[in-house]
Simulated scan of single mutants.
Amino acid sequence: MTVLIPAYEPDHRLLELIANLQRVDSKMHIVVVDDGSGEGYRDLFNIAGAAGCTVLIHPTNQGKGLALKTGFRHLIEIGSTEGVVCADSDGQHLPSDIMRIIAAVDENPNELVLGCRYFTGKVPFRSRFGNSATRMVYTLTTGRRIQDTQTGLRGFSASMLNWLCQIPGERFEYEMNMLLAAQEEGIRMYEVPIDTIYLEQNKSSHFRPVADSVKVYAPIVKFCSSSLLSALLDFALLFLLQLATGSLLVSVAGARVGSSVVNYSMNRRFVFNKKQKPSVLSSAPKYFALVVLILMFNYGFMYLYNESFGLPLIVAKLLTEGTLFVFSFWTQRQFVFRAERLPRSHSSRVSKHAS
């Protein structure tokens, strides 16, 4: 089994992790990817190489996703037939937990193994909030729940290496894309509880709060953008048609039809962009049936919140739109624009071993 460690500007904890892993298994194959750390870190990587690790070098920083892919491609090139476990270089993953992931990969070769933290004890706010947010996005996107969507401790069999290289993403968004791709491909996920460790309030993390968050939350961001543009178009068409026809019915209906057609096109091409797009004949009827259904739900929820619960109209409208936004996103991803694939099991399982 190979342990793959992407590293950008690491400190002594990388060498400590390597030494601890080699104490557990002196023959362990360890691959370290220097993701453009620069000359100031050359000695540290030389020490890792002298310790028996394979060190792969990026001349410039390219991101965690590309660093992982460099490691995967290396394993393909050398003809590795064993699995691989990815671990972070900052000391957050204990050798004992890494060994448990290795064992889980051996026992579950057809599943993506995740080392999942349960965020007990003192956890930095940005880490707790970030994982909660991405967990919510993943659940909203797929309809399935994973305990730790941001874990860097993951295990794969050798048969998954080519698939891992094809998943889009260059930086931290790659790990979320991997989970989304696994769901779409029907690859089961096996969750192994691990210790939650944050050193120095996670100062060593190279996660960029704005740039990387936008990429991680891209599915929701694109859907929000598409919805906003369609709403603006609906608003503009409403007034233009009202000026042209003087008929409110024609204006409302025409604006809704026009904005719906544009929204369908944007969602099919850009928002739910997949390698195997469903055909227009397959997706369009589902989409416009959803439009009709949402119109009915819109009235129903407005009546429920405003008339039955007595909420102010603006509050009822906000609650209605929020509810239907979640419903629309999930339905479009799971049913309207879902690519055709052979049926496979795509549930996740949790190890019963205690952490």
Rank of each mutant, 00 (worst) to 15 (best):
S265L: 13
I294K: 08
N177T: 06
L249W: 09
T141L: 10
S345M: 08
L324W: 09
L153Q: 07
I187L: 13
V216P: 03
S260P: 11
S159M: 10
S308E: 13
F288T: 10
R73C: 03
H346T: 02
Y174F: 15
E175M: 05
R349K: 08
S347V: 08
I30Q: 10
V137S: 08
M99K: 13
T151R: 01
A354H: 15
A284G: 06
S308F: 15
Y118T: 06
A255F: 02
L68S: 01
T81G: 14
R269P: 01
F125S: 12
Y299D: 09
K277F: 13
E321V: 14
K352S: 12
D11N: 13
V84T: 08
K69H: 12
R171W: 05
L293M: 01
L15W: 05
A231T: 05
T60C: 11
Y287F: 15
V350M: 04
R344I: 01
E175C: 03
M266Q: 03
I314Q: 11
E39Y: 02
I57D: 02
L313R: 14
L241W: 03
G79E: 05
V221T: 01
R154P: 06
L319D: 07
E77Q: 15
T142P: 03
F301N: 04
T151P: 05
V250N: 04
Q166P: 05
I76W: 00
H74Y: 15
A316G: 15
L295A: 10
A181Q: 06
T151I: 01
W330D: 00
A244P: 00
V137T: 06
D43H: 14
S225A: 15
S247I: 06
E111R: 15
T54R: 15
L232E: 01
Y264E: 04
Y138V: 09
S308V: 15
Y198A: 08
V113C: 03
R117E: 03
P193I: 04
L161D: 02
M28R: 13
S283I: 09
V216H: 03
K122I: 04
D88A: 11
N273T: 02
P312K: 13
F297D: 01
F45Q: 00
L14K: 05
R42I: 04
P6M: 00
D234W: 03
P209L: 10
P285G: 09
A51N: 07
E200N: 13
S132D: 05
I314T: 11
Y198M: 04
T142S: 11
Q332S: 11
L14V: 06
V291I: 14
G310K: 10
E184R: 11
T245S: 15
P312D: 09
G71Q: 05
A218T: 07
E191G: 09
P124V: 02
G155H: 01
N108E: 09
Q147F: 07
S204F: 09
E82Q: 14
A133T: 09
P124K: 03
V292H: 07
K317R: 14
A354Q: 12
A104Q: 00
Q183P: 00
H353E: 13
T70G: 09
I197M: 10
V210Y: 14
E200R: 08
V261I: 11
L179V: 02
Q332N: 12
Y303E: 09
A253L: 10
L179G: 01
V137M: 14
R256A: 08
V214A: 12
S259G: 08
A51D: 08
A284P: 08
S348W: 06
L243G: 10
R145I: 14
A50E: 12
Q166V: 07
